[in-house]
Design a protein around this nucleic acid. Structure first.
Lengths: 387, 387
DNA sequence: TAGTGATGGGAAAGCGCATTCCCGTTTCAT
DNA sequence: ATGAAACGGGAATGCGCTTTCCCATCACTA
């Protein structure tokens, strides 16, 4: 038994498919009450489920929102995904998921796949890459996005603009104040302790990581401190762990140099490790502990993101709270309000009349001054130590 | 500029749409090399992207896999989602996401939405509810799933069978040995310490939670221990936290009774808290600590799931490792290998020939002895204490 | 050389629905 | 009473693609 079609429903109800369509998928024309009743009943009886594909084809609007993340199991992305999902629900849309591991080439493919499905909007979360070897793929990604936009699509980008993407209509950027907040974090940590700093970041060229590192350095500089050494590793728990292993050696040797092996010696200067995200920070702590060091007695550790699941970690991580779910929501809402068709119609009108249509509430998302995302520096136990 | 269509490509290449279709989306008939070349070039030139909706409509196979979870930001589900996503990718399919908060009514709607989109398969992760008030919704969910299956869909269910769902073809269950593993955990914990046990579980009627609780009690019974008291709360961090608050009082008063207020007294019997999942366990630990208690000195805590992000938590949680990503993969693979069309054809053939087609490798997933998911009990610091 | 089967290409019929016309009724102002 | 305007319904077209079905061509074998 194949799924029943609108035509079957119409036949059973003794009306034309047109009428059946009108009553079942509310059009501006309201059919007579008797007819409506019959059709609805027929639909019920047959267990009619409209074919969304056919609807999409006929209406050229799919009710789909594409979401691109590096890894859905990463709490950073799953928090954003929750936000995206929540507004999708309010708009009666569904979210299509693509994970790319951060490869621009994969991201390009994901965009193409979403475009093929005529997604009403695409949300790209996850850091851009500015690595030279990714440049070609980035350009292609930008081209793909441009095409998607020209065809009436809307894309919401979390974080940084796509390298090389035109600022055309359809782009909506939710900027994250990574640099700013990292700088503030550094400032506050600099006040708190006088020792050296080390930064554990992702691979060079991962924009989010680079931004945070740069911000942190700026904050240190403003506080009159020397620039911190940077350890580049992978932008996840494993990377933090590896860095932690490396740092443990250094910490121990500098301790010996300072206390001359006297266990009763009270250390004045501890190393403060800033990891460019919380998951890395946790990895670093794990490694340091395995090496027999204690936090915050032997080293201070700070992170970034304020991942929910990690808030109960002890000693609590000093970090920067980013409203991730809200960010996902913002990025999605920034793209919303227009179906593909409306957008195409709008731009056509604009072409004819020779000027842009008045910008609506949602439109201002694209003008470079995206919605305000405010973070918050949180100082907690992992960077505070009184002997 | 609207997206270019196959017809436009065909025209540019000077061939018929039929031929263009054949060369661009591989059919069994291979067009001549000269023609292929021209068509491919035309497609490139126009930036042709096939309309997946139209393809789906024509082929009645959408390349979509629907995934239903309670909450995508919950690490349990996001780990499963990663597994689902990974096999989707190998099959060149995309994942459609729906979150339901665990409400059977929402799940029913999600299934309907997936059916409307003609998803090739649906994976349902997340516990069923056996609460009386959900019974009606469960029945409807089962009906919706049945219909979906009859129309050639495949559904992979993680955990427990849908209450009331027929065991018809198309259902594929990945059973989780929750009860079994909880029982083993209890057995090992019972060996480790002699004190009392308390179970912190989700709301009564949440099958996963109930299974784990029952298993734990069985394990205790087998070890000759009295049944543990059960605290029912919400199946998340907040629930664990609340329970922790409650338990703190009790722990303190029983401590006073035992040691008479002597701080040097070495406690013999500690309360061992088994939380029905790791996130709850973490919540409980947080609450206990806020109350000034220490783990494992004042209380032991065990969880379930072995959530990746929480492995670095200290003291390390005793828990049960479930291969979540693998589970997601299994559930997805169990549904795979058939397009909707093939399945419909197969069942038609079966009808005519009067017997079931030979079961393939994948088919055995539906026969009640689903793929083997093996977990592992992990005893760690949070339940081990030597004064 | 006629006959036969393969082969590559096109015409056309849907897939299931929305939507634009178009037409017969009714309603209301004149 | 009469025309216009609204209204409720149906026929038909098209969304973009796949897939039969059919036809012309070609390479063989007899």
């Amino acid at each position: 038994m194949a799924a029943s079609t609108l035509t079957e429903v119409a036949r059973l109800a003794g009306v034309s498919p047109a009428t059946a369509s009108r009553v079942l998928n509310g059009s501006d024309r309201k059919p007579g009450p008797g007819v409506s009743e019959r059709v609805r009943q027929a639909a019920e009886e047959l267990g009619y489920i409209p074919n969304a594909q056919a609807q999409a084809l006929a209406k050229s609007s799919s009710g789909l929102i594409g979401l691109i993340v590096h890894d859905i199991a990463d709490p950073y992305f799953s928090a954003i995904a929750r936000g995206v999902q929540s507004v999708a629900k309010t708009q009666n849309k569904m979210v299509l998921l693509a994970t790319t591991g951060g490869t621009p080439a994969d991201e390009k493919e994901a965009v193409a796949a979403f475009a093929a499905r005529r997604a009403d909007a695409i949300v790209i979360a996850g850091s851009r890459s500015s690595r030279p070897e990714d440049q070609k793929a980035n350009t292609e990604l930008a081209a793909e996005l441009d095409r998607y936009c020209r065809n009436g699509g809307h894309v919401g980008i979390v974080g940084q603009a796509i390298v090389g993407a035109g600022r055309s209509e359809g782009y909506h950027l939710v900027e994250l104040p990574n640099e700013q907040l990292a700088s503030e974090l550094a400032a506050q940590l600099a006040q708190l302790h006088s020792g050296e700093f080390v930064i554990v970041g992702g691979p060079e060229g991962l924009v989010t990581s680079d931004d945070r590192i740069r911000g942190f350095q700026k904050g240190l500089a403003n506080a009159g401190r020397a620039p911190a050494e940077v350890v580049n590793t992978s932008f996840n728990r494993a990377g933090g762990y590896d860095a932690g292993r490396q740092l443990a050696d250094r910490i121990r040797s500098s301790q010996e140099a300072e206390d001359g092996g006297d266990p009763a010696y009270t250390r004045k200067s501890r190393l403060c490790v800033f990891a460019a995200n919380d998951v890395m920070a946790i990895g670093a702590v794990a490694a340091l502990r395995e090496e027999g060091l204690r936090i915050p007695r032997d080293a201070l550790v700070a992170g970034f993101d304020d991942i929910e699941t990690l808030r109960d970690f002890r000693p609590a991580l000093s970090t920067v709270r980013l409203p991730l779910e809200e960010i996902g929501r913002l990025a999605t809402m920034s793209t919303a309000g227009y179906s593909r068709k409306e957008t195409l119609a709008r731009s056509k009108t604009a072409d004819e009349s020779g000027h842009q249509p008045a910008s609506t509430g949602a439109a201002h998302f694209g003008d470079g001054q995206g919605p305000a995302v405010t973070g918050e520096v949180k100082l907690r136990r992992s960077t505070q130590w009184t002997p």
